[in-house]
């Protein structure tokens, strides 16, 4: 039997709370935060009051999903597809997004554990900066590299 490490709820909640705290520390807009495992399944999710539901909720989910499935941050994914002159439609998966704010989670062996997605700020770089707070918290806990 093959054993593999799986992202747990404790890790997911640690990331979500670190990101919400970071957003509170540098007040901007309300955000949605999603943490997804390596199967693309949702482990933890929070939508702050006042979030644009159609946009931010969906984008947070898609950013986390894209990072976990494509094994790279969404900004790197955007660059790669630009370089290949490909669009998301070419990937055949319309749940992908190239918006900044999705980060891949890997353990020390390079195994993909999942992805974090943040949405709500006016630009993807700001969403990514918030998502980094989640990654930092997970690194500090020794869960990811």
């Amino acid at each position: 039997m093959r054993m593999r490490q799986v992202l747990g709820l404790d890790e997911a909640m640690l990331a979500v709370k670190a990101i919400l705290a970071e957003n509170e520390a540098s007040p901007g807009r309300p955000i949605a935060v999603a943490v997804i495992d390596d199967h693309g399944d949702l482990v933890a999710f929070v939508c702050e009051a006042g979030v644009n539901p159609a946009l931010a909720r969906q984008n947070a989910l898609r950013k986390a999903y894209t990072s976990a499935c494509m094994r790279m941050d969404t900004m790197a994914f955007a660059d790669r597809f630009d370089g290949l002159k490909r669009t998301i439609a070419d990937s055949g998966n319309l749940n992908f997004t190239s918006g900044g704010g999705g980060l891949v989670l890997k353990n020390s062996e390079g195994l993909i554990l999942g992805g974090i997605g943040v949405s709500g700020r006016p630009d993807g770089a700001e969403d990514e900066a918030l998502a980094q707070a989640g990654l930092r918290a997970l690194r500090a806990a020794g869960a990811v590299v």
Binding site: V6, L9, D41, A44, F45, V46, P53, R57
Partner: peptide, 9 residues
């Protein structure tokens, strides 16, 4: 529509 979710291990 989803506002919060937690899936325990």
């Amino acid at each position: 529509d989803l506002m919060a979710l937690a899936c325990m291990d």
